[in-house]
Nucleic acid binder design. Structure first.
Length: 447
RNA sequence: GUCCCGGUGGUGUAGCCCGGCCUAUCAUGCGGGACUGUCAAUCCCGCGACCCGGGUUCAAAUCCCGGCCGGGACGCCA
Protein backbone atom coordinates (compact mmCIF):
# COMPACT_ATOMS: atom_id res chain seq x y z
CA UNK A 1 0.00 0.00 0.00
CA UNK A 2 1.16 3.47 -0.80
CA UNK A 3 1.91 5.67 2.19
CA UNK A 4 2.14 9.42 2.55
CA UNK A 5 5.47 10.88 3.58
CA UNK A 6 4.12 11.85 7.00
CA UNK A 7 3.23 8.22 7.79
CA UNK A 8 6.69 6.68 7.51
CA UNK A 9 8.27 4.75 10.37
CA UNK A 10 11.85 3.54 10.54
CA UNK A 11 12.84 0.00 9.58
CA UNK A 12 9.76 -0.78 7.52
CA UNK A 13 9.51 -1.44 3.86
CA UNK A 14 7.26 1.15 2.23
CA UNK A 15 5.89 2.33 -1.04
CA UNK A 16 5.70 6.09 -1.51
CA UNK A 17 4.71 8.03 -4.59
CA UNK A 18 4.97 11.64 -5.59
CA UNK A 19 6.98 14.23 -7.44
CA UNK A 20 10.74 14.71 -7.67
CA UNK A 21 11.08 17.98 -5.79
CA UNK A 22 14.88 18.14 -5.75
CA UNK A 23 17.77 16.12 -7.06
CA UNK A 24 21.31 16.41 -5.74
CA UNK A 25 24.02 14.36 -7.37
CA UNK A 26 27.36 13.76 -5.64
CA UNK A 27 29.01 11.30 -7.95
CA UNK A 28 28.40 7.97 -6.31
CA UNK A 29 25.72 9.37 -3.99
CA UNK A 30 22.36 10.78 -5.07
CA UNK A 31 19.69 12.45 -2.99
CA UNK A 32 16.19 12.72 -4.35
CA UNK A 33 13.60 14.70 -2.44
CA UNK A 34 10.18 13.22 -3.04
CA UNK A 35 7.17 15.43 -2.43
CA UNK A 36 3.60 14.28 -1.92
CA UNK A 37 0.48 15.98 -0.60
CA UNK A 38 1.60 15.70 2.99
CA UNK A 39 5.26 16.64 2.83
CA UNK A 40 8.71 15.51 1.78
CA UNK A 41 11.00 12.57 2.20
CA UNK A 42 14.59 12.13 1.16
CA UNK A 43 15.45 9.13 -0.97
CA UNK A 44 19.12 8.32 -0.67
CA UNK A 45 20.97 6.29 -3.27
CA UNK A 46 24.46 5.23 -2.43
CA UNK A 47 26.09 3.43 -5.32
CA UNK A 48 27.15 0.66 -2.98
CA UNK A 49 23.68 -0.18 -1.67
CA UNK A 50 21.39 0.21 -4.68
CA UNK A 51 21.53 -1.69 -7.96
CA UNK A 52 22.97 -0.05 -11.00
CA UNK A 53 19.66 0.25 -12.82
CA UNK A 54 17.98 2.13 -9.94
CA UNK A 55 20.98 4.41 -9.62
CA UNK A 56 20.82 5.21 -13.32
CA UNK A 57 17.10 6.01 -13.15
CA UNK A 58 17.67 8.40 -10.25
CA UNK A 59 20.53 10.11 -12.03
CA UNK A 60 18.48 10.68 -15.20
CA UNK A 61 15.13 11.62 -13.71
CA UNK A 62 13.96 15.19 -14.38
CA UNK A 63 12.55 17.40 -11.63
CA UNK A 64 8.80 17.13 -11.06
CA UNK A 65 8.60 13.73 -12.67
CA UNK A 66 6.17 11.39 -10.96
CA UNK A 67 7.78 8.40 -9.33
CA UNK A 68 6.98 5.50 -7.08
CA UNK A 69 9.65 4.40 -4.64
CA UNK A 70 9.75 1.06 -2.89
CA UNK A 71 12.36 0.85 -0.19
CA UNK A 72 13.36 0.67 3.44
CA UNK A 73 12.89 3.60 5.77
CA UNK A 74 15.83 4.18 8.07
CA UNK A 75 16.77 6.60 10.80
CA UNK A 76 19.44 8.99 9.63
CA UNK A 77 20.36 12.06 11.66
CA UNK A 78 21.91 13.63 8.58
CA UNK A 79 18.63 13.44 6.62
CA UNK A 80 16.24 16.44 6.61
CA UNK A 81 13.48 14.87 8.74
CA UNK A 82 15.73 12.41 10.51
CA UNK A 83 14.61 9.62 8.21
CA UNK A 84 15.33 8.63 4.64
CA UNK A 85 14.37 5.90 2.23
CA UNK A 86 16.92 3.54 0.73
CA UNK A 87 15.19 2.43 -2.45
CA UNK A 88 14.95 -1.12 -3.71
CA UNK A 89 13.14 0.09 -6.76
CA UNK A 90 12.24 3.41 -8.37
CA UNK A 91 9.47 3.37 -10.93
CA UNK A 92 9.03 6.37 -13.16
CA UNK A 93 5.26 6.74 -13.58
CA UNK A 94 5.53 9.77 -15.81
CA UNK A 95 8.46 11.97 -16.56
CA UNK A 96 8.22 15.76 -16.55
CA UNK A 97 9.31 17.81 -19.51
CA UNK A 98 11.86 20.58 -19.11
CA UNK A 99 12.07 23.43 -18.51
CA UNK A 100 9.29 23.85 -15.97
CA UNK A 101 6.84 26.76 -16.36
CA UNK A 102 7.60 27.84 -12.82
CA UNK A 103 9.70 26.73 -9.92
CA UNK A 104 7.81 24.67 -7.31
CA UNK A 105 10.73 24.92 -4.88
CA UNK A 106 10.18 28.68 -4.71
CA UNK A 107 13.85 29.52 -5.12
CA UNK A 108 12.79 31.88 -7.86
CA UNK A 109 9.53 33.74 -7.26
CA UNK A 110 6.80 33.88 -9.90
CA UNK A 111 4.22 36.55 -10.63
CA UNK A 112 0.62 35.79 -9.74
CA UNK A 113 -0.31 35.82 -13.40
CA UNK A 114 2.34 33.23 -14.29
CA UNK A 115 1.24 31.18 -11.31
CA UNK A 116 -2.41 31.27 -12.32
CA UNK A 117 -1.55 30.34 -15.90
CA UNK A 118 0.16 27.27 -14.48
CA UNK A 119 -2.04 26.78 -11.49
CA UNK A 120 -1.63 22.99 -11.42
CA UNK A 121 2.04 23.47 -10.81
CA UNK A 122 1.63 26.46 -8.53
CA UNK A 123 -0.49 24.22 -6.32
CA UNK A 124 2.45 21.88 -5.88
CA UNK A 125 3.92 24.50 -3.58
CA UNK A 126 2.97 23.55 -0.04
CA UNK A 127 2.17 27.15 0.79
CA UNK A 128 -0.42 27.29 -1.96
CA UNK A 129 -2.04 23.94 -1.34
CA UNK A 130 -2.31 24.84 2.35
CA UNK A 131 -4.76 27.62 1.42
CA UNK A 132 -7.08 25.11 -0.22
CA UNK A 133 -6.77 22.56 2.52
CA UNK A 134 -7.91 25.30 4.89
CA UNK A 135 -10.70 26.29 2.53
CA UNK A 136 -11.96 22.72 2.52
CA UNK A 137 -11.76 22.60 6.29
CA UNK A 138 -13.78 25.80 6.59
CA UNK A 139 -16.57 24.36 4.45
CA UNK A 140 -16.61 21.29 6.62
CA UNK A 141 -16.81 23.34 9.83
CA UNK A 142 -19.58 25.50 8.35
CA UNK A 143 -21.67 22.49 7.37
CA UNK A 144 -21.19 20.95 10.77
CA UNK A 145 -22.13 24.23 12.43
CA UNK A 146 -25.38 24.62 10.54
CA UNK A 147 -26.42 20.99 10.83
CA UNK A 148 -25.85 21.06 14.55
CA UNK A 149 -28.24 23.99 14.77
CA UNK A 150 -30.97 22.35 12.75
CA UNK A 151 -30.39 24.14 9.45
CA UNK A 152 -31.26 22.38 6.21
CA UNK A 153 -28.79 22.58 3.35
CA UNK A 154 -30.45 23.61 0.11
CA UNK A 155 -29.59 24.33 -3.49
CA UNK A 156 -31.34 27.08 -5.37
CA UNK A 157 -31.20 27.51 -9.17
CA UNK A 158 -28.13 28.84 -10.91
CA UNK A 159 -30.16 29.71 -14.00
CA UNK A 160 -32.69 32.41 -13.33
CA UNK A 161 -35.13 34.62 -15.20
CA UNK A 162 -34.65 37.88 -13.29
CA UNK A 163 -31.97 39.31 -11.12
CA UNK A 164 -32.39 39.58 -7.41
CA UNK A 165 -31.69 43.27 -7.16
CA UNK A 166 -31.51 44.79 -10.60
CA UNK A 167 -30.38 43.77 -14.03
CA UNK A 168 -26.97 45.22 -14.77
CA UNK A 169 -24.58 42.85 -13.10
CA UNK A 170 -25.91 39.60 -14.53
CA UNK A 171 -24.38 37.32 -17.14
CA UNK A 172 -27.01 36.70 -19.79
CA UNK A 173 -27.40 33.40 -21.55
CA UNK A 174 -29.64 31.77 -24.08
CA UNK A 175 -32.19 29.40 -22.56
CA UNK A 176 -33.83 27.58 -25.45
CA UNK A 177 -34.39 30.86 -27.20
CA UNK A 178 -35.38 32.80 -24.10
CA UNK A 179 -33.16 35.19 -22.21
CA UNK A 180 -31.93 33.87 -18.89
CA UNK A 181 -29.20 34.79 -16.45
CA UNK A 182 -26.66 33.21 -14.18
CA UNK A 183 -27.57 33.64 -10.54
CA UNK A 184 -25.69 36.32 -8.65
CA UNK A 185 -27.24 35.48 -5.29
CA UNK A 186 -29.69 32.97 -3.78
CA UNK A 187 -31.49 35.88 -2.13
CA UNK A 188 -34.98 35.60 -3.57
CA UNK A 189 -35.06 31.81 -3.41
CA UNK A 190 -33.83 31.47 0.12
CA UNK A 191 -36.48 33.99 1.15
CA UNK A 192 -39.20 32.05 -0.65
CA UNK A 193 -38.08 28.99 1.27
CA UNK A 194 -38.97 30.84 4.45
CA UNK A 195 -42.58 30.52 3.34
CA UNK A 196 -42.06 26.79 2.79
CA UNK A 197 -41.78 25.76 6.39
CA UNK A 198 -38.19 24.59 6.02
CA UNK A 199 -37.61 27.37 8.48
CA UNK A 200 -33.82 27.50 8.68
CA UNK A 201 -31.79 26.92 5.56
CA UNK A 202 -28.24 27.40 4.36
CA UNK A 203 -26.59 27.13 1.00
CA UNK A 204 -22.97 26.97 -0.09
CA UNK A 205 -22.76 27.77 -3.76
CA UNK A 206 -21.15 29.63 -6.60
CA UNK A 207 -22.51 32.91 -7.96
CA UNK A 208 -21.75 35.02 -10.99
CA UNK A 209 -21.35 38.76 -11.16
CA UNK A 210 -20.83 40.53 -14.43
CA UNK A 211 -19.35 43.68 -12.91
CA UNK A 212 -16.32 44.95 -14.77
CA UNK A 213 -14.42 45.63 -11.62
CA UNK A 214 -10.73 45.14 -11.55
CA UNK A 215 -9.45 44.94 -8.02
CA UNK A 216 -7.63 42.57 -5.67
CA UNK A 217 -10.95 42.23 -3.93
CA UNK A 218 -13.48 41.22 -6.60
CA UNK A 219 -14.12 38.16 -8.71
CA UNK A 220 -16.71 37.45 -11.36
CA UNK A 221 -17.31 33.99 -10.01
CA UNK A 222 -17.57 33.70 -6.25
CA UNK A 223 -18.59 31.16 -3.67
CA UNK A 224 -20.75 32.18 -0.75
CA UNK A 225 -22.20 30.79 2.41
CA UNK A 226 -25.79 31.93 2.67
CA UNK A 227 -28.28 31.38 5.41
CA UNK A 228 -31.85 32.38 6.05
CA UNK A 229 -33.83 31.96 9.25
CA UNK A 230 -37.52 32.38 9.98
CA UNK A 231 -39.17 33.64 13.15
CA UNK A 232 -36.45 36.09 14.12
CA UNK A 233 -37.21 39.14 16.22
CA UNK A 234 -34.71 41.37 14.46
CA UNK A 235 -31.42 41.40 12.58
CA UNK A 236 -29.68 40.98 15.94
CA UNK A 237 -30.69 37.30 15.86
CA UNK A 238 -28.98 36.89 12.48
CA UNK A 239 -25.86 38.73 13.64
CA UNK A 240 -25.63 36.36 16.57
CA UNK A 241 -25.63 33.32 14.27
CA UNK A 242 -23.05 34.91 11.98
CA UNK A 243 -20.80 35.78 14.89
CA UNK A 244 -21.02 32.26 16.28
CA UNK A 245 -20.26 30.85 12.86
CA UNK A 246 -17.18 33.00 12.34
CA UNK A 247 -15.87 32.34 15.84
CA UNK A 248 -16.47 28.60 15.46
CA UNK A 249 -14.61 28.52 12.16
CA UNK A 250 -11.64 30.39 13.57
CA UNK A 251 -11.42 28.37 16.78
CA UNK A 252 -11.76 25.06 14.99
CA UNK A 253 -9.16 26.04 12.40
CA UNK A 254 -6.74 26.88 15.16
CA UNK A 255 -7.31 23.43 16.61
CA UNK A 256 -7.39 21.33 13.47
CA UNK A 257 -5.30 23.12 10.85
CA UNK A 258 -2.15 23.92 12.79
CA UNK A 259 0.09 22.41 10.14
CA UNK A 260 -1.42 24.33 7.23
CA UNK A 261 -1.53 27.57 9.20
CA UNK A 262 2.10 27.26 10.19
CA UNK A 263 3.10 26.64 6.55
CA UNK A 264 1.46 30.00 5.89
CA UNK A 265 3.39 31.56 8.75
CA UNK A 266 0.37 31.85 11.01
CA UNK A 267 0.75 30.75 14.59
CA UNK A 268 -2.87 31.20 15.55
CA UNK A 269 -5.71 33.17 14.03
CA UNK A 270 -6.69 35.85 16.42
CA UNK A 271 -10.26 36.79 17.21
CA UNK A 272 -11.55 38.97 20.00
CA UNK A 273 -15.15 38.52 21.06
CA UNK A 274 -17.84 39.61 21.33
CA UNK A 275 -17.68 41.44 18.00
CA UNK A 276 -18.40 45.12 18.53
CA UNK A 277 -21.62 46.36 16.97
CA UNK A 278 -21.79 49.97 15.93
CA UNK A 279 -24.53 51.71 14.09
CA UNK A 280 -24.02 53.45 10.77
CA UNK A 281 -24.63 56.74 12.60
CA UNK A 282 -21.90 55.96 15.12
CA UNK A 283 -19.50 54.92 12.32
CA UNK A 284 -20.02 58.30 10.68
CA UNK A 285 -19.20 60.05 13.97
CA UNK A 286 -16.01 58.04 14.42
CA UNK A 287 -14.97 58.73 10.84
CA UNK A 288 -15.64 62.39 11.35
CA UNK A 289 -13.16 62.36 14.23
CA UNK A 290 -10.65 60.78 11.84
CA UNK A 291 -11.23 63.64 9.44
CA UNK A 292 -13.31 61.67 6.94
CA UNK A 293 -16.55 63.43 6.21
CA UNK A 294 -19.29 61.36 4.65
CA UNK A 295 -22.74 62.57 3.73
CA UNK A 296 -25.51 60.90 5.63
CA UNK A 297 -26.88 58.14 3.42
CA UNK A 298 -23.63 57.59 1.57
CA UNK A 299 -22.11 54.12 1.76
CA UNK A 300 -18.73 53.76 3.45
CA UNK A 301 -15.84 54.33 1.05
CA UNK A 302 -12.75 52.13 0.91
CA UNK A 303 -10.82 54.81 2.77
CA UNK A 304 -13.54 54.97 5.43
CA UNK A 305 -13.50 51.20 5.88
CA UNK A 306 -9.73 51.29 6.42
CA UNK A 307 -10.00 54.07 8.97
CA UNK A 308 -12.70 52.23 10.82
CA UNK A 309 -10.38 49.24 11.07
CA UNK A 310 -7.69 51.47 12.56
CA UNK A 311 -10.23 52.54 15.14
CA UNK A 312 -11.21 48.99 16.11
CA UNK A 313 -7.66 47.73 15.99
CA UNK A 314 -6.78 50.11 18.82
CA UNK A 315 -9.35 48.25 20.88
CA UNK A 316 -7.93 44.91 19.80
CA UNK A 317 -10.73 43.96 17.40
CA UNK A 318 -10.24 42.62 13.88
CA UNK A 319 -13.88 41.79 13.24
CA UNK A 320 -16.86 44.06 13.88
CA UNK A 321 -20.41 44.78 12.79
CA UNK A 322 -21.71 48.00 11.30
CA UNK A 323 -25.48 48.00 11.46
CA UNK A 324 -28.68 49.98 10.94
CA UNK A 325 -27.80 51.46 7.58
CA UNK A 326 -30.11 54.00 6.01
CA UNK A 327 -32.62 52.55 3.56
CA UNK A 328 -31.18 54.10 0.40
CA UNK A 329 -27.87 52.25 0.80
CA UNK A 330 -29.58 48.85 1.00
CA UNK A 331 -31.39 46.47 -1.35
CA UNK A 332 -35.17 46.56 -1.70
CA UNK A 333 -35.89 43.55 0.52
CA UNK A 334 -34.30 45.09 3.62
CA UNK A 335 -36.61 45.61 6.59
CA UNK A 336 -37.11 49.20 7.70
CA UNK A 337 -38.92 50.53 10.71
CA UNK A 338 -42.61 51.35 10.66
CA UNK A 339 -43.69 49.37 7.63
CA UNK A 340 -46.44 47.26 9.18
CA UNK A 341 -50.21 47.54 8.60
CA UNK A 342 -50.00 50.10 5.84
CA UNK A 343 -51.13 50.28 2.24
CA UNK A 344 -48.38 50.29 -0.44
CA UNK A 345 -49.14 53.95 -1.26
CA UNK A 346 -48.71 54.99 2.35
CA UNK A 347 -45.38 53.16 2.59
CA UNK A 348 -44.16 54.59 -0.68
CA UNK A 349 -45.08 58.02 0.59
CA UNK A 350 -43.19 57.33 3.81
CA UNK A 351 -40.06 56.28 1.91
CA UNK A 352 -40.22 59.30 -0.32
CA UNK A 353 -40.41 61.53 2.71
CA UNK A 354 -37.54 59.79 4.43
CA UNK A 355 -35.38 57.60 2.17
CA UNK A 356 -32.72 57.53 4.88
CA UNK A 357 -34.97 55.68 7.29
CA UNK A 358 -33.10 53.11 9.40
CA UNK A 359 -33.06 49.51 8.26
CA UNK A 360 -32.47 46.33 10.23
CA UNK A 361 -29.30 45.60 8.32
CA UNK A 362 -25.63 44.98 8.94
CA UNK A 363 -22.24 44.39 7.37
CA UNK A 364 -19.51 42.35 8.94
CA UNK A 365 -16.09 43.88 8.37
CA UNK A 366 -12.86 41.93 8.86
CA UNK A 367 -9.60 43.87 8.88
CA UNK A 368 -11.20 46.78 7.10
CA UNK A 369 -13.02 44.88 4.41
CA UNK A 370 -16.58 43.71 4.10
CA UNK A 371 -16.87 39.94 4.23
CA UNK A 372 -20.57 39.55 4.88
CA UNK A 373 -23.78 41.48 4.81
CA UNK A 374 -27.24 40.64 5.99
CA UNK A 375 -30.48 41.90 7.39
CA UNK A 376 -33.93 41.20 8.57
CA UNK A 377 -36.07 41.09 5.41
CA UNK A 378 -39.38 42.67 4.67
CA UNK A 379 -41.99 39.94 5.09
CA UNK A 380 -45.05 42.14 4.56
CA UNK A 381 -46.35 42.00 1.01
CA UNK A 382 -47.50 45.63 0.80
CA UNK A 383 -44.21 46.95 2.08
CA UNK A 384 -42.27 44.82 -0.38
CA UNK A 385 -44.28 46.11 -3.32
CA UNK A 386 -43.74 49.68 -2.15
CA UNK A 387 -40.04 49.09 -1.72
CA UNK A 388 -39.68 47.60 -5.20
CA UNK A 389 -41.45 50.61 -6.64
CA UNK A 390 -39.31 53.00 -4.67
CA UNK A 391 -36.15 51.36 -6.00
CA UNK A 392 -37.50 51.67 -9.54
CA UNK A 393 -37.80 47.91 -10.07
CA UNK A 394 -40.59 46.33 -12.11
CA UNK A 395 -43.04 44.64 -9.76
CA UNK A 396 -44.15 42.17 -12.49
CA UNK A 397 -40.63 40.75 -12.77
CA UNK A 398 -40.84 39.74 -9.12
CA UNK A 399 -44.27 38.16 -9.36
CA UNK A 400 -43.17 34.62 -8.59
CA UNK A 401 -41.25 35.89 -5.58
CA UNK A 402 -44.04 38.11 -4.28
CA UNK A 403 -46.50 35.22 -4.33
CA UNK A 404 -44.61 33.66 -1.43
CA UNK A 405 -45.42 36.69 0.71
CA UNK A 406 -49.19 36.44 0.29
CA UNK A 407 -50.03 33.21 2.04
CA UNK A 408 -48.15 33.13 5.31
CA UNK A 409 -44.60 34.43 5.24
CA UNK A 410 -42.97 34.51 8.69
CA UNK A 411 -40.61 37.28 9.74
CA UNK A 412 -37.12 36.27 8.64
CA UNK A 413 -33.60 37.34 7.90
CA UNK A 414 -30.22 36.05 6.85
CA UNK A 415 -26.77 36.80 5.56
CA UNK A 416 -24.35 36.03 2.79
CA UNK A 417 -20.70 35.45 3.57
CA UNK A 418 -18.12 35.43 0.77
CA UNK A 419 -15.81 32.48 1.21
CA UNK A 420 -12.97 33.95 -0.82
CA UNK A 421 -13.12 37.21 1.09
CA UNK A 422 -13.27 35.47 4.41
CA UNK A 423 -10.32 33.27 3.49
CA UNK A 424 -8.36 36.22 2.18
CA UNK A 425 -8.73 38.23 5.38
CA UNK A 426 -8.24 35.18 7.55
CA UNK A 427 -4.90 34.31 5.94
CA UNK A 428 -3.83 37.84 5.02
CA UNK A 429 -3.73 37.04 1.32
CA UNK A 430 -2.88 40.06 -0.80
CA UNK A 431 -5.10 39.16 -3.72
CA UNK A 432 -8.47 37.42 -3.67
CA UNK A 433 -7.36 35.32 -6.64
CA UNK A 434 -5.09 33.47 -4.21
CA UNK A 435 -8.21 32.13 -2.50
CA UNK A 436 -9.65 30.46 -5.62
CA UNK A 437 -8.20 27.52 -7.50
CA UNK A 438 -9.05 28.85 -10.93
CA UNK A 439 -10.20 32.45 -10.58
CA UNK A 440 -12.51 34.16 -13.03
CA UNK A 441 -11.92 37.85 -13.36
CA UNK A 442 -12.54 40.44 -16.02
CA UNK A 443 -9.77 39.12 -18.28
CA UNK A 444 -9.18 35.61 -17.09
CA UNK A 445 -11.31 32.83 -18.55
CA UNK A 446 -8.59 30.16 -18.64
CA UNK A 447 -7.40 27.88 -17.22
C1' G B 1 -15.81 51.82 -16.10
C1' U B 2 -11.96 55.93 -14.53
C1' C B 3 -6.85 56.94 -13.12
C1' C B 4 -1.55 55.53 -12.31
C1' C B 5 2.43 52.04 -13.40
C1' G B 6 4.53 48.11 -16.20
C1' G B 7 5.74 44.08 -20.39
C1' U B 8 13.67 41.73 -21.29
C1' G B 9 15.73 33.77 -21.89
C1' G B 10 11.42 28.49 -18.88
C1' U B 11 11.12 31.62 -14.10
C1' G B 12 12.45 36.18 -11.35
C1' U B 13 15.32 40.45 -12.66
C1' A B 14 19.48 44.65 -14.23
C1' G B 15 19.74 47.96 -18.29
C1' C B 16 15.34 52.41 -20.32
C1' C B 17 15.33 58.63 -17.28
C1' C B 18 20.49 60.56 -20.31
C1' G B 19 19.51 56.18 -28.02
C1' G B 20 25.47 53.99 -30.13
C1' C B 21 30.81 50.51 -26.31
C1' C B 22 23.88 45.55 -25.55
C1' U B 23 27.32 40.39 -29.51
C1' A B 24 21.92 42.59 -23.12
C1' U B 25 23.29 41.94 -16.31
C1' C B 26 22.62 38.70 -12.26
C1' A B 27 20.13 34.55 -10.09
C1' U B 28 17.57 30.22 -10.91
C1' G B 29 16.71 26.61 -14.64
C1' C B 30 18.22 23.45 -18.68
C1' G B 31 22.37 20.25 -21.36
C1' G B 32 27.34 18.09 -20.46
C1' G B 33 31.45 16.92 -17.00
C1' A B 34 33.84 16.22 -11.81
C1' C B 35 32.45 14.73 -6.94
C1' U B 36 29.92 9.26 -1.17
C1' G B 37 26.15 12.98 3.30
C1' U B 38 23.74 16.71 0.63
C1' C B 39 19.56 19.64 2.50
C1' A B 40 18.84 26.67 -2.36
C1' A B 41 25.09 21.05 -2.45
C1' U B 42 29.72 22.78 -4.72
C1' C B 43 33.11 23.46 -8.95
C1' C B 44 34.08 23.67 -14.54
C1' C B 45 32.02 24.17 -19.70
C1' G B 46 27.77 25.28 -22.58
C1' C B 47 22.29 26.93 -23.81
C1' G B 48 18.43 30.36 -23.77
C1' A B 49 15.19 36.81 -23.98
C1' C B 50 14.16 42.85 -25.53
C1' C B 51 4.99 41.77 -26.11
C1' C B 52 2.81 43.04 -31.23
C1' G B 53 2.28 46.85 -35.11
C1' G B 54 3.61 51.62 -36.82
C1' G B 55 6.71 56.11 -36.39
C1' U B 56 11.27 59.35 -35.26
C1' U B 57 16.67 58.67 -36.15
C1' C B 58 22.66 57.44 -39.56
C1' A B 59 21.42 54.25 -35.21
C1' A B 60 15.87 51.96 -30.81
C1' A B 61 15.48 47.11 -25.36
C1' U B 62 15.96 52.54 -24.59
C1' C B 63 12.15 58.09 -27.52
C1' C B 64 6.73 58.78 -29.67
C1' C B 65 1.69 56.64 -31.15
C1' G B 66 -1.82 52.50 -31.27
C1' G B 67 -3.12 47.51 -29.78
C1' C B 68 -2.96 43.37 -26.59
C1' C B 69 -1.63 41.62 -21.87
C1' G B 70 -0.29 42.35 -16.69
C1' G B 71 0.15 45.03 -11.65
C1' G B 72 -2.19 48.58 -8.45
C1' A B 73 -5.76 52.53 -6.79
C1' C B 74 -10.86 54.15 -7.00
C1' G B 75 -16.24 53.32 -7.76
C1' C B 76 -19.51 49.06 -6.54
C1' C B 77 -20.03 44.80 -3.90
C1' A B 78 -19.40 39.14 -1.10
Amino acid sequence: MRKYTNELKPNEEVEVAGWVHEKRIHGKLIFLVLRDREGFVQVTLSKKDVDEETFKIAKKISKESVIKVIGIVRNEPKAPNGIEIVPKKIIVLNKAQTPLPLDPTEKVPANLDTRLDNRFMDLRRPRISAIFKIRSKILNIVREFFHKRGFIEVHTPRIIATGSEGGTELFALDYFGREAFLSQSPQLYKQMLMASGLDKVFEIATYFRAEEHNTVWHLNEITAIDCEVAFIDSHEDVMKILEELVVTVINRLNETSKKELSILGIDEIYVKTPFPRISYDKALEILNDFGIKLKYGEDLTTEAEKKLYEYFKQEGYDIYFIKDYPYITRPFYTYFEGLEDKQPEEILEMLKENPKIKTRSFDLDYKGREISSGSQRIHIYNALVASLKFKGLRVESFKYYLEAFKYGMPPHGGFGLGIERFLMQLLDLKNIREAVLFPRDRNRLTP
